[in-house]
Nucleic acid binder design. Sequence first.
DNA 1: TGTCAAATTAAAATCATTTTAAATTAAAAC
DNA 2: GTTTTAATTTAAAATGATTTTAATTTGACA
Lengths: 150, 150
Amino acid sequence: MEHRIEKIKKQLHSQSYKLTPQREATVRVLLEHEEDHLSAEDVYLLVKEKAPEIGLATVYRTLELLSELKVVDKINFGDGVSRYDLRKEGAEHFHHHLVCVECGSVEEIEEDLLTDVESQVERDWGFQVKDHRLTFHGICKKCQVVTVNS
Amino acid sequence: MEHRIEKIKKQLHSQSYKLTPQREATVRVLLEHEEDHLSAEDVYLLVKEKAPEIGLATVYRTLELLSELKVVDKINFGDGVSRYDLRKEGAEHFHHHLVCVECGSVEEIEEDLLTDVESQVERDWGFQVKDHRLTFHGICKKCQVVTVNS
DNA sequence: TGTCAAATTAAAATCATTTTAAATTAAAAC
DNA sequence: GTTTTAATTTAAAATGATTTTAATTTGACA
Ligand SMILES: [Zn+2]
Ligand SMILES: [Zn+2]
Ligand SMILES: [Zn+2]
Ligand SMILES: [Zn+2]
């Protein structure tokens, strides 16, 4: 945990940004909820528990900043809100998601899976891929069982 | 064109919805701008040219309805607006996108590309894939040339 | 023709996000 | 160590996209 904060601090400094207490509190919340897919509002409410004076606008600005630095990725599952997802340690690319259309659960896939597809796109479309967003919509393991039994 | 309208009309009827003049005008706009990625507002302005009395709320409701029927797919490129993309004729899945981070252009990929990845996900994660969203972010052909020359 | 449900309109409401202006903080300059 | 300065934060207001509401219209069909 602490070493990841240190790392992010360095990343900020390298672009001459500071790791202010508000920013640190925000990053800590993200680290403590790495599995979740929090909206700005979610993050705000959680940060408020440790730093009650923080404003929602600051959370938005911090998330935007972290997003520029590629510390987090901003994603959108189609409900009206943006969600902010910490990049896995050392990950080059954004990870993928499995969204269950039955129960709404979101599972993560850290494996890249797209290496071949990306070479194909570079070769056949002449498009130089820098990053990707991949989400599968379908039925999760749990919900398949329920459907079978009912 | 007409036969696609007919098809959509039937799809609506099969769920006991009607193809009202407003809905038809909206569908026509979508068909005439199949290559574009129009926002609700964009669609509204274009529909207004043929049916000036239409309201923005109706356009939203129509797009939502078409989205439920899988006639269009709702997509989000990270700017604050939803865009509505007609499904290609006979397509089982949503098509993919190449978004250029330099010039903002959006190119479409109709080839599926994900067959293998999807079997892998079904096999290794036990997730039954129904649909997907795949967007690549990178540099388009045009912008690569510019970069090389400058 | 009269009835009823579905659909539409225009306006207001809501919700997420951004902007603003004033106040605070903290590093840099003196 | 005080002053200066730029960056940051706050709280409130503004914005922009989307949804809801209530009143009206439309059109099938009894
Ligand atoms: Zn599920
Ligand atoms: Zn994730
Ligand atoms: Zn480009
Ligand atoms: Zn498209």
